[in-house]
């Protein structure tokens, strides 16, 4: 079942050459491992930054959304590193399941939000036909993951019952935060990871080191 990818376009930044879109074993395992690591980092981060987020979320009109971006980085990392259909969704979903099981905190709601955020990011990579993985795609994926989270919370947090001003403000902060903290930061992270040679089995890493 080797899906044949279209012929490569001229090498602009972030354009991938024709590739096999079927997931290899290393794609699956590394996607899981990245998900587990990011899920764990959220738990560690919670010790430092969560109290502030909670306070901001409770008393400010939607400004809590500014910190949300960090929680959306899994999908961006998954898409940029693995570059296969479903990678953004898979990483975000597994990260959610890991924090649901390991951290034992939010339970099923975490899994719903993993799904919503993952779908948001995944859509962006799909729109670009899984052929472009540059800064622009990262920013859009982060923003879309934020939009996904916002949409889900309309229901899960009952946000539909909040005022229009709150919802608008919250939407803006979540999307901007997703674009910056998940998108830009995620892109920088993948670039730095590629420079360590850890991604040598992935196109994202081979591009970075293609000199030797």
């Amino acid at each position: 079942m080797h899906a044949s990818a279209p012929t490569p376009t001229a090498s602009t930044t972030g354009a991938a050459p024709a590739r096999n879109l079927r997931w290899r074993v290393v794609d699956i395992v590394v996607a899981s491992v990245v998900a587990v690591a990011t899920g764990l980092l959220f738990l560690f981060w919670n010790n430092i930054g969560y109290a502030w987020f909670v306070a901001a979320d409770a008393v400010t009109p939607g400004l809590g959304g500014i910190a949300v971006g960090i929680w959306l980085i899994g999908g961006v990392l998954g898409g940029l590193i693995i570059r296969k259909p479903g990678a953004a969704l898979f990483v975000e979903l597994v990260a959610a399941m890991v924090s649901a099981i390991v951290g034992n905190q939010w339970g099923v709601e975490t899994i719903w939000s993993g799904l919503a955020q993952g779908i948001g990011a995944e859509l962006v990579f799909a729109i670009f036909l899984y052929r472009r993985f540059g800064l622009l795609q990262a920013i859009l994926a982060g923003a879309a993951a934020g939009a996904g989270a916002w949409t889900l919370e309309l229901f899960t947090s009952g946000n539909l019952q909040k005022s229009a001003e709150f919802l608008t403000l919250y939407f803006c902060t979540v999307v901007v935060s997703g674009a910056v903290l998940a998108g830009v930061l995620g892109w920088l992270l993948v670039r730095a990871l590629a420079a360590t040679g850890a991604l040598s089995r992935f196109a994202a890493g081979q591009e970075a080191t293609r000199r030797v």
């Binding site: 290899r24 074993v25 290393v26 699956i28 395992v29 590394v30 899981s32 491992v33 990245v34 587990v36 690591a37 990011t38 764990l40 980092l41 560690f44 981060w45 430092i48 590193i81 992270l189 730095a192 990871l193 360590t196 850890a198 991604l199 089995r201």
Partner: peptide
Amino acid sequence: FATMAFALLVLAIRRGSKLATAME
């Protein structure tokens, strides 16, 4: 935190790549 998070990701991806080889 940032330096630790980054190193953790590097170690995680390395381990994941080796694990994938062992599984294959």
